[in-house]
Design a protein around this nucleic acid. Structure first.
Lengths: 203, 203
DNA sequence: AACCTATTTAATAACTCTATTAAATAACTC
DNA sequence: GAGTTATTTAATAGAGTTATTAAATAGGTT
């Protein structure tokens, strides 16, 4: 391989491996081998495995929460609002298929991930919920929307989006779906989720 | 500890550890220490770590799918039908809080878990979907129900149930919820999920 | 070219991990 | 109680892990 920027290469390759196999599932020796450099170099640039992992976690979790934070602010219908959120989330998941597995898999026992989630959530969490609440209240004041819990709404959308993805991976393996069928499955889920969410809150 | 049945003790303790920390996150030395026996005993009874893990996986995944397979067959309303399924799932998750983290966490890279899911799904999967389809068709023939995709319905319910649980663990840590608040959160989600599911399919 | 600094490697210390072996102990069977 | 089998342990081989060190190499500057 021997790309000129080894520091970045290591981070990139380590990200892929950690995301797929988890913290304990990857050794610095494996990272070095995959990069094509000496194992000591991994430690030269990032000192410890913990530290390398921490940097990667921070980047990835931040990326994920950014998706939620990037709520459309224009004056659109509630239907389009929901659609855009779902679209953004599924889009992100398509580009980062390992993300939910990584987060859920590490969350259960990796205190580093937990701490990071806590930190980044207290940074972005209120902002995200606040933005959506604002939009919902605006629509409510116009009489276009019933009473609705923003927290439940968010949990519902994230739940359905994330698990569509987990399901897709599962079914891909179990039912031997080809990539075309996978794509179709996700598209079907996307419209289904939108319909499901909207059916419960239309005024 | 030194309970008289070491073979069983090892399985029990190993289950707890594997469920929380995953395959790579647990060593046979740790298992032995937690049980209070010699490390070689773990291998005496189960030969390899792989094999021990496999046995535990089989048991746990089977338990999970059983929950889905135990669909109420009595002549009840569709509303009660959905409620019972949700009740059963949330109940199971309360007793096995690590289960979704374990499955999703291992699914991404542990071929053993994947293979097992594949095997057990082809054994129970069709049965489960078939049972629900039968119930749905029965209700449809009576005109009590719209057209509905059984697959989507199942994915929806499982998604919302499982992620309520993942969310609960997350929020417990992030928002420092006490056990009473956790219980309330789950109860609220339970009724919310039921309402959400039903709102989309009532005829 | 000589010097300096940044990058990369080989070697290795100090562990830990899995799995096996042989020996010790406990539990039965006659 | 002697003999047989089952359970449990100590010891250890062999491989792999993280992290450090000193040495080698590459790049840039004067």
């Amino acid at each position: 391989m021997q790309k000129n920027n080894m520091e970045e290469q290591i981070l990139l390759v380590a990200k892929e491996l950690f995301m797929q196999f988890g913290y304990e599932g990857v050794s610095t020796t494996q990272v070095a081998k995959a990069v094509g450099c000496n194992q000591a170099l991994v430690h030269y640039y990032y000192r410890t495995k913990q530290n390398l992992f921490k940097i990667i976690c921070q980047q990835e979790i931040q990326k994920m929460l950014k998706i939620l934070a990037d709520i459309p602010q224009e004056d659109i219908s509630f239907e389009d609002f929901i659609e855009k959120i779902i679209e953004a989330q599924i889009g992100f998941l398509k580009n980062n298929p390992d993300a939910p597995f990584f987060i859920i898999g590490e969350l259960r026992h990796n205190s580093e991930v937990l701490k990071m989630m806590k930190e980044l959530f207290s940074e972005f969490g209120k902002e995200i919920v606040g933005k959506i609440r604002l939009f919902v209240q605006m629509k409510q004041s116009k009489g276009e929307l019933n009473d609705v819990s923003v927290e439940d709404l968010l949990i519902d959308i994230v739940s359905l989006d994330v698990m569509s993805f987990v399901g897709q991976v599962l079914f891909t393996q179990i039912l031997e779906m080809d990539s075309q069928t996978q794509e179709a499955f996700l598209e079907r889920r996307k419209t289904h989720i939108k319909k499901l969410i909207l059916s419960s809150i239309k005024s």
